[in-house]
Simulated assay, not measured.
Amino acid sequence: MSSRALIADAEATLLDRKEQLSLEELAALAALPSSSVPSLAALAHEVRLAWCGPEVEVEGILSAKTGGCPEDCHFCSQSARFETQVLATPFLDTDQVLRAAEETARLGASEFCIVLAVRGPDERTMQRLLELVPMVRDRVGINVAVSAGILTDEQARRLSEGGVHRYNHNLETARSFFPQVVTTHTWDERFETCRLVRRHGMELCCGVLLGMGESVEQRIELIGQLRQVEPDEVPINFLNPRPGTPFGDRPLVEPLEAIRWIALFRLGLPGAILRYAGGREVTLRELQALGMTAGINALIVGNYLTTLGRSPEEDLQMLDDLRMPIGVLSKVL
């Protein structure tokens, strides 16, 4: 079947019948030549508008406890197992967290995520989060998300009851590739935490990291596995190789290939919030606006956990230039 026919069939399924594509159909689209990527991106943009609407959600993130993580995620400079330039720091104090939340809100963001470099929260960390979350929400008037690693059922219940709006726990990559990325915990532990988040009524933010050496087939596998946990939001990260980590010498994803996969994740997860996240600046360079018209409908503004993003003003100007309104894409507590 020709490229044009494959894209036309996908359009009929997603826009006319409002049905999901099969993984086999996504694999066929993944095999299209590079010359078809702009057409694929255009369809993904139409799917985003039809399934999610025109609004773009803006979020700020704060690394409230940086470095010293005991896990060996091979892409991460916060692991205590690797010789990197990231030093372990204690949990930020309350005033620092509140100031960061206030700055995020001033940018027009509707979500503020508190991120901790831990395997999972101990009781002291749980108490700190349960103190901070309602304080930030009530004083700043912004939804609060948390990323604190692997959860037990009891911890998920307490965070939900404590006012956490959205919990971030990334699958990162396909189950079949995961052992090449992390050895200190399993993909199934991550998958179970995602299920607990959903079970206890929090929104699930479950991201991916592309460019670690996974195959095309494993990226399609990952889309199928994301469908199983039904995330509200999927951050799209591209590997930004960190010196001192096992993946520090991996090449960047090519810009046009990044656009292809943004589009494919939108076509595979048509109703999800698809968020621009880490690595987009170095991967896409001058094509970042094109990504916004290839299915993206949310973005992190400002800096990431251990790497610099571009200025929030640049991103807000990009949205204004594209006539993309900033809005809230999920339930608000």
Rank of each mutant, 00 (worst) to 15 (best):
L129M: 15
L333Q: 08
N168A: 10
N303G: 01
R81N: 07
R158Q: 14
A42P: 05
N237F: 07
G295H: 13
P255N: 04
P179G: 12
N170I: 03
Q180R: 14
P270K: 08
Y276I: 13
A31P: 00
V37C: 06
A101K: 01
N303Q: 04
E103Y: 08
N143A: 15
V140T: 01
L210D: 02
E24K: 03
L130A: 09
A109M: 01
R198Q: 11
A117S: 15
Q317R: 14
S34W: 04
L62T: 03
L209Q: 02
R242C: 06
G53F: 13
H200W: 14
L132T: 01
E25P: 08
I220R: 06
R106F: 02
L299A: 11
D122G: 03
D320L: 10
L239N: 05
I259D: 05
H169N: 08
S63H: 03
L322F: 07
A109G: 07
E103C: 07
F177P: 06
V216W: 03
M1W: 10
V56C: 10
W261I: 02
F178N: 07
I223R: 07
L6R: 13
E214W: 11
L62K: 04
A109S: 15
R157G: 05
E313I: 06
Q155I: 09
L274Y: 09
A277M: 10
V182D: 01
F247M: 15
L29I: 11
V136F: 11
P90W: 11
E203W: 08
